[in-house]
Write a protein that binds this DNA or RNA. Structure first.
Lengths: 108, 108
DNA sequence: CAGTATCCTATCGGATACTG
DNA sequence: CAGTATCCGATAGGATACTG
């Protein structure tokens, strides 16, 4: 079914998955999904992120072509926007199922 | 728009996001999405995963109510299945946009 | 077969202080 | 304002060997 098999070790899709496999990428993408933002705006929008991690996350997203940068102005690229939908679904799931997750943890 | 705001630092959805914020959770969920599997089957299905990480990932998913366990038989719970759709979309995105990602990295 | 135990390195991520 | 530099602890993750 899949052209490239996610279950293969050398599959590039694995690398791609790793892109969102960290604490902040998803949240930063969501933040920029609201529109172009300046560094300081993103920093304020996202509670708890440090300047270090914000810079680091933005640089990686930029390096992977998901974010476009002009000085301190950041915005999603077309590629980044296409990820926004997927990531949005993930965030929505997270928000909707938080109770169930918390319950499960408590029961364990 | 969102009941719980993903951008707030103390939002439980953040914790939930962290659940898939690692290398293996998504792949393991995809693997179990194909049906109930035994430990060794999952290990063989997923290239490159170590026994240590498989066990660790399965335990965490179990603790969070996404995976049900009976001895060495594992399967997704209803909650886990609901995540499968979302995670599937993510995996599909990863597979579809691999080329663009690779190009972007090369250009950088 | 299904793990556990141990060791090791790399990365994650926060705190703080500094710079142009 | 928009970072960079440095230090620190915690976790991720691989390799290998061992156990019932």
């Amino acid at each position: 079914m899949s052209a490239s098999d996610l279950f293969l070790a050398d599959c590039p899709a694995r690398t791609t998955l790793a892109l969102v496999g960290d604490t902040w990428s998803v949240v930063v993408i969501m933040a920029l999904g609201e529109g172009p933002r300046r560094y300081g705006e993103v920093l304020e929008r996202i509670g708890g992120i440090s300047k270090k991690m914000l810079t680091q996350t933005l640089r990686r997203l930029e390096r992977n072509g998901l974010v476009d940068r002009d000085g301190a102005d950041y915005r999603l690229t077309a590629l980044g926007s296409s990820l926004l939908d997927v990531v949005g679904a993930l965030a929505r799931w997270a928000e909707e199922h938080t109770d169930a997750l918390v319950d499960a943890q408590a029961a364990a």
